[in-house]
Design a protein around this nucleic acid. Structure first.
Lengths: 154, 154
DNA sequence: TTATTTGTAACTGAAAGTGATACATATAAT
DNA sequence: ATTATATGTATCACTTTCAGTTACAAATAA
């Protein structure tokens, strides 16, 4: 799996946290520690899937196309990897029957696994992800504040 | 996912079909349409996991270390990919809190998916796979015989 | 008209994977 | 013992994939 899915969730989470105002690929890339074009490539896919809308020019950027409680992580996954993604590679193709049948058997197993993943992703909305991530960020920040306090006290 | 898992299932299925006699990497590679070394690399992992035993020298090769109904596809999967395999990549690491937390969140989701895959693989034995694959091979061969017959008749 | 931002194409460098060659090690047969 | 065979690995070459970058066209607000 490439990094499009994490980037997509980051974009959606970021837009949710912002709550309305448009965000540029530049800003999101800075926070994520990557290049704006990398973000835009994913942005573009999310746009085509109807999850966000993007506007060019001054004051442009992206906003959510639906409310965050109406976007599931499955929507995001399918937007960035439309074709089966958990399939194994197979060695150089040959016309023998046995390896072909075994290969198809393995593919079916992996497709089932991907279906299970999709069903699970469908139960989580971007809104819920946002809440979870925020909670953890608070915890992480508190922890680092605590450790600084301990250091200062010692 | 790399092609080790399909190759592992091919090896195990092949040894099951043979039913006792040792098979060389040379023979299996020929049927699979790949290089003997590629097969041996997977053989080696299956050996270390205790699923097959391999012997060097004249008359050597590999045999199943247990009965095929006592080897699950999960055993094969874990033998060839010990570490989580469905994880997404992440862009260049940075020390910001947000991308780290989002990245961990995504990793957890994918680990859950892999757990589901493993549980499913656990319910299928090499013996059962062998039966399924054999049945399909017979069907495929019959189909091609039928089509030859139709051609001959026309 | 100008500044800004998306949308893409094209290129580079790095990483992973498959396949191949080579050779050491083990083992059975002679 | 010697020889032939097969595994076990190291190493290299080739391909593919991906992240990151540069460059530029198209759109849009000021």
């Amino acid at each position: 799996m490439n990094s499009d899915f994490p980037i997509a969730l980051h974009i959606l989470g970021f837009l949710t946290a912002r709550g309305g105002g448009p965000l540029t690929s530049e800003e999101m890339a800075r926070t994520y520690g990557t290049n704006p074009v990398v973000v835009r490539r994913v942005q573009s896919k999310l746009s085509k899937a109807g999850l966000i809308t993007s506007k060019r020019g001054v004051g442009g950027g992206s906003v959510l196309a639906r409310r965050p409680e109406e976007i599931t992580l499955r929507n995001a996954y399918e937007a960035v990897s439309p074709e089966p993604d958990i399939l194994p590679r197979h060695p150089t193709s040959c016309d023998e029957v046995v390896p072909i049948v075994v290969g198809e058997f393995v593919n079916e197993i992996c497709r089932d696994a991907e279906s299970a993943l999709l069903e699970q992703l469908e139960t989580v909305t971007v809104k819920e992800m946002d809440r979870t991530v925020r909670r953890r960020i608070r915890k992480a920040l508190n922890a680092s504040r605590e450790s600084r306090k301990r250091k200062a006290a010692s």
